Computed example of a mutant assay.
Amino acid sequence: MTKQNKAYKFRLYPTDEQALTIRKTFGCVRFVYNKMLAERKETYELLKDDKEELKKVKHPTPAKYKSEFEWLKEVDSLALANAQLNLDKAYKAFFRGNSKFPKFKRKRNKQRYTTNVVNGNIQLLDGYIKLPKLKMVKMKQHRAIPTEYAIKSCAVSMTASGKYYISILTEYEKEIESKKIENVVGLDFVMDGLFVDSEGKKANYPKFYRQFLAKLASEQRKLSRKKKGSSNWNKQRIRVAKIQEKIANQRKNFLHHKSKELVSNYDAVIIEDLDMKGMSQALKFGKSVADNGWGMFTSFLTYKLNEQGKKLVKIDKWFPSSKTCSDCGNTQPMPMNLRTYVCLCGLHLDRDVNAALNIKKEGIRLLAIA
């Protein structure tokens, strides 16, 4: 039996007093993070040429600031401790060369804090959740968490429109048996509709962002004409945020359903290991790539396949899937304006379906040698 993790996200409906405490916690977490980062940055600038000495330095903890800033005692201490852990993680990633030096958090960044389970301080109780410093908070629990799943931590967040959510991280034991791979599908990413599979089926992504583009632009223009910080500006800011959240929620819902459908029907899914950031920066592709949500889609696919002992295979992004004939293996140039692959061997096929067939074949080859 191996330990697995699964997160459940629910909407919170805090009272005015609880909402105030939550927002205070956001602020305190941001304040402590920035304080600790400022001290680390100062130390790093002094000792960056002496790495051995830099390793010996003891970094500040949230407890250091509580005597000077008494209001830090009003919020969940575990939330502050997690701010330190997050900074430690970012700092170590920088020294490993995996990321840039940590940046200071700003108020407009995502409002979020994490707390952990200690001595029963977090409990689910019939439409409510008990949280440190907040006591019982009303929650819309639209699906049950199995009783054998142990709660490990909770992340409380607030959207730009002022809605509160909680993500409950659980841990459980499960023996995942690898499924025998029989049904395999290849997916070719397309700007217009997310993907085409090796059986010729299209995802038909509805382009939620494009649907709301005119309305969003109109509401953003209204926002730009209002005095920043005023009551009317804030009301309009919330209107814009609600449209953006609706688009994001529709996209996420579609991608969840589409990934679940694939996982239910196939034992292995083959995709290309694409550089989405590079594609989004390409001429005229930015909005299309962002609207599709391919990165989110592949994340959903990954964990859903893993839960069932199935496989997600990524082939090299330079693999010539579009240029290769899926029938005879011949290669030829395929500029973007050519939508049909025509080969001397007689193949006459939609270029995306042809590419998906090649992706499937290459994935099967990789599975065979794995």
Rank of each mutant, 00 (worst) to 15 (best):
141 Q>A: 14
172 Y>R: 00
56 K>C: 07
20 L>E: 14
90 A>W: 09
191 M>P: 03
317 K>N: 05
111 Q>A: 14
368 A>N: 14
186 G>A: 07
127 G>Q: 11
293 G>T: 10
132 P>C: 12
297 F>G: 04
279 M>H: 04
110 K>P: 00
62 P>A: 05
310 K>R: 12
171 E>H: 09
169 L>P: 04
221 R>P: 01
214 A>C: 03
270 I>E: 03
360 K>S: 10
321 S>W: 03
298 T>R: 11
63 A>V: 09
216 L>M: 01
151 I>A: 08
211 Q>I: 12
84 Q>R: 12
9 K>V: 10
15 T>A: 12
143 R>A: 06
74 E>T: 02
159 T>S: 14
229 G>F: 08
340 T>M: 02
40 R>H: 09
170 T>G: 05
117 V>K: 11
238 I>C: 05
143 R>C: 11
370 A>H: 03
89 K>I: 06
167 S>T: 09
10 F>G: 13
140 K>D: 12
55 K>Q: 11
85 L>I: 07
239 R>A: 06
227 K>M: 05
246 K>T: 13
169 L>S: 11
68 E>H: 05
195 F>A: 06
118 V>I: 13
323 K>A: 09
197 D>G: 01
240 V>L: 03
151 I>Q: 07
262 L>M: 14
86 N>S: 10
349 L>H: 02
321 S>N: 01
289 V>Y: 03
65 Y>K: 04
271 I>S: 02
100 K>V: 11
124 L>Q: 02
257 H>Y: 12
259 S>G: 10
183 N>V: 09
293 G>Q: 08
142 H>Y: 13
66 K>L: 08
285 F>L: 13
